[in-house]
């Protein structure tokens, strides 16, 4: 009988079968190439971010709820510029500036920035040094109680530490970051007092509770007291009343 129409893997394929195989292989490659063109386009509107510029600044160090540096007002920052501080990798900057609370410090770090979300990265003690300049500290003012909707992200990745650095695929990473001491922020659905994000804190002004992990990367509504520190807004949230969608 003719073998030409019956394929046995270990026998030489017939000419007809070889032709079919070449066409099949080209079809497979073509289909995969077309799918790659379609799926490779991921038009995420995440906005441009910068990672790696040096930043040098002098300001008042604030340890709670998360390490912050508040610089004096200038033309670009009439209320002063409040920088989030972060450490190396998925660690907060809590190891640095332990004795600096309320004092003036000089920062020499690396800036991560997306839009108005800015974080200065510090990886060694000499990058955040005490300066013997007298200061009257910084004022935290209350803007009253608010109910705000947005997405909770870790302040480092959403600032450009990772791109996109937000969204559900990033949830586990965001949790790992916040559990490592990096500040969680609420990226708001609409601007609040001209700002698009708030630093999150516990109701008493301390670091956000561990329960924040269940709320990251999904749309949430948080209620609480909004505080202003320099040009940054801080939400001292009632975590028990947080609503998930």
């Amino acid at each position: 009988m003719s073998r030409s129409d019956f394929f046995v893997g270990y026998l030489p394929a017939s000419r007809a079968l070889r032709r079919t195989a070449v066409i099949g292989a080209l079809t497979l490659c073509g289909a995969f190439a077309a799918l790659a063109i379609a799926l490779g386009r991921t038009p995420a509107d995440i906005g441009p971010s910068d990672y790696g510029d040096d930043i040098a600044a002098t300001g008042v160090f604030v340890a709670q709820p998360y390490p912050l540096l508040v610089t004096p007002p200038d033309a670009a920052h009439p209320r002063g510029r409040t920088l989030l501080l972060g450490g190396e990798g998925k660690r907060g900057a809590q190891d640095f500036g332990r004795d600096l609370e309320g004092r003036v410090a000089r920062l020499a770090g690396i800036l991560v920035r997306r839009g108005e979300i800015e974080m200065a990265l510090v990886s060694a003690a000499d990058q955040l040094q005490r300066v013997d300049t007298p200061t009257s500290g910084v004022q935290t003012t209350s803007l009253g109680r608010w109910r705000i909707t947005g997405e909770i992200c870790d302040g480092k990745c959403v600032a450009g530490g990772m791109r996109p650095g937000a969204g559900l695929a990033h949830k586990a990473c965001a949790n790992l970051c916040t559990s490592g001491g990096l500040p969680p922020v609420l990226v708001t659905a609409r601007p609040i007092e001209g700002r698009n994000y708030l630093l999150l804190a516990a109701r008493d002004g301390g670091a956000a509770p561990d329960a924040v992990a269940d709320l990251t990367a999904i749309p949430v509504t948080l209620e609480g007291e909004v505080m202003r520190l320099g040009d940054m807004l801080i939400l001292r949230a009632d975590w028990a009343t947080a609503r998930k969608f």
Partner: peptide
């Protein structure tokens, strides 16, 4: 053939992205 299809997919995907 399979290796070529996979390599083409990965290369094109990354180039486009």
């Amino acid at each position: 053939a399979l290796g070529l299809a996979v390599a083409a997919y990965l290369w094109i995907f990354m180039a486009v992205a």
